[in-house]
């Protein structure tokens, strides 16, 4: 794997241990899955997998998630019935960050839903009640979204296929915006990310994300909660997007994004000469070498 020099220049100074960071990018992350609590329980799944002789390790920060030592867990009865969902660990974080809000919410939007890993998790946290709007702009990805929601037994979702910016003025209690991004944090699973990697690409994504986050914030009810997340390291797509939200909507308040048992890191204080607002420190970065996961960024915003 050839890591672009410019990539190393950009992030080498942001991480605590450049060598550990770069070498981690060349290693596949462990296989993981989440128990679909609409159909089973962590205890039941653990019992069945023990019977298969497959070693499972419970994720310390999420009782419904497991790391699995067998790459063929997808050929299990539990995967067939939708009792488990193969999902990268960091991808489980946005719903988990607003779990208590989701358990109470009756009107929720997943703004960029396909292929549905987070959507099925949201539906489970809502216990299949209320209404969950699962939107994705990409028509080709709607099919996978539909398949995964059906397999998980999701009853409370309405799938829409729109540009989020074109949504009418609905108001939601909770919104998840897992924004389209340059996906640098998925390099461990997909080296192709470097083939198309460029700083101009990062800037393009940043522009799209800035529009989306303001639109999503405007669709929150008063006291509503928005999670913003990406699977990338680029400050332009993370702290820079939150800064744009605060500049555009000064009433936005960031709450602490933290998980007991998961190591998170400080956000970037400034980038390319721009000092970021103090509040942005409440967001969290997850570097791959700290928890043996993909890279991630997430923030919790209140209206």
């Amino acid at each position: 794997m050839k890591i672009p020099d410019r990539f190393i220049e950009r992030y080498g100074s942001l991480v605590d241990d450049k060598g550990a960071f770069l070498s981690c990018l060349g290693i596949m992350p462990p296989k993981s899955f989440r128990v679909n609590t609409l159909k089973s329980s962590a205890e039941e799944v653990a019992r069945r997998f023990e019977g298969y002789g497959i070693g499972l390790k419970r994720v310390p920060w999420y009782g419904d998630a497991f790391i699995c030592d067998n790459p063929e867990a997808g050929f299990s009865l539990e995967h067939f019935t939708g009792a488990i969902y193969m999902q990268e660990l960091v991808s489980m974080l946005p719903p988990l960050l607003v779990r208590s809000e989701l358990e109470k919410s009756r009107f929720v939007l997943d703004g960029c839903a396909a292929p549905g890993s987070k959507t099925t998790q949201i539906a489970a946290m809502m216990n299949n009640r209320g209404t969950l709007i699962a939107n994705d702009v990409s028509y080709s990805r709607i099919r996978a979204l539909k398949f995964n929601l059906e397999k998980a037994g999701v009853l409370n979702a309405v799938i829409t296929n729109r540009d989020l910016n074109a949504f009418q003025n609905l108001r939601f209690e909770t919104i998840l915006l897992d924004a389209p991004c340059s996906s640098e944090g998925t390099i461990r699973k997909n080296y192709d990310v470097f083939d198309s990697w460029s700083e101009s690409g990062i800037r393009q994504y940043s522009n799209v994300q800035k529009q989306l986050i303001v639109k999503a914030f405007d669709m929150l009810m008063p006291e509503g909660t928005l999670t913003y997340s990406t699977c990338t390291f680029a400050p332009e797509e993370n702290e820079g997007v939150l800064q744009h939200l605060i500049d555009s909507r000064p009433e936005a308040r960031l709450e602490k994004a933290a998980f007991e048992g998961l190591r998170t890191s400080e956000t970037v204080a400034s980038w390319n000469g721009v000092e970021f607002n103090e509040q942005i420190r409440n967001a969290a970065r997850i570097w791959p070498h700290h928890n043996d996961t993909g890279g991630f960024f997430l923030a919790k915003v209140k209206k």
Binding site: R106, F107, G130, T131, L132, I133, I142, K146, L149, E150, G153, V154, L155, N156, A157, V158, I159, T160, N161, R162, Q168, L170
Partner: peptide, 29 residues
């Protein structure tokens, strides 16, 4: 929940409350 009817006799079970939205691909299961 509500029952919703699509083409070719397909019946979906979905949320009772569905907002007025364009470009709905599917409601429920």
């Amino acid at each position: 929940y509500g029952l919703y009817m699509a083409s070719k006799g397909r019946i979906y079970l979905g949320p009772r409350r569905v907002p007025d939205l364009p470009k709905i691909a599917t409601i429920g299961l």
